[in-house]
Amino acid sequence: MPLELATVSPLFAEFPFEWNYIRSIVRVSLYVSLVAVALSTLFSLPIALLIGFKEFRGKTLLTSIINTGMGFPSVVVGLIVLFAVSGQGPLGSLDLVFTPEAMILSQFVLATPVITGVSLAAVSSVEQNVRDAAYAMGGTRFDVALVTIKEARYGIATALLAGFGRAISEVGSVLIVGGNIAGADGESYTRTLTTAIQLEARQGRFETAMILGAILVVLVLLVNAIVVRLGSGNGGYR
């Protein structure tokens, strides 16, 4: 093992942007953003359904608060999350600062208003009579929710994509809470595509920055394609 490392490390020194570097950055980016979006979906979808189904005072206000949250500046979220996870913050004992998990937390905060807001719009647009029909056919509240989700699935897919897009393309907060850390061997720990691009650009290595940028765009396209494919593939929408 030490021998192997000894022969490999000079290679990395000569080509700092080895395949390993890029691969680990892509892995960290995807891990953080996908987990954040998955958690956020589990959290946002029930809320969107609840708000969508219920009529209550202040619904319009709540909806506009969620919609405002969509444009919340990511650096501010980063700062708030940093204070929360920092040694003296309320979550300080979890030792999350400068970890991928802290980045997941900040991306969760960023993606949640987007996913909630867009799904809420989708759910609200499912016509009342569809819900009534499901209810009339003896469906439980859970069945009605499922029917609604099925009817609104394109809108919800759009919500997930928008949330994912917000998460993976964001620089400010992950830089603050993650610290843009890569190991001496070029293995990324909290360095994502966006923070790596920022770092490469600041060092004037625009070519590497461009390559990473291209990878980021391709990734987002790929995820979009997969989600759209899944959305149109199952269920046999007529």
Partner: peptide
């Protein structure tokens, strides 16, 4: 990076550099 790699090898301690 140049300084950290041998340290990490020798001590088995990862240095997260911010």
């Amino acid at each position: 990076d140049e300084l950290n790699a041998p340290f990490e090898d020798r001590y088995g301690v990862t240095v997260d550099t911010v």
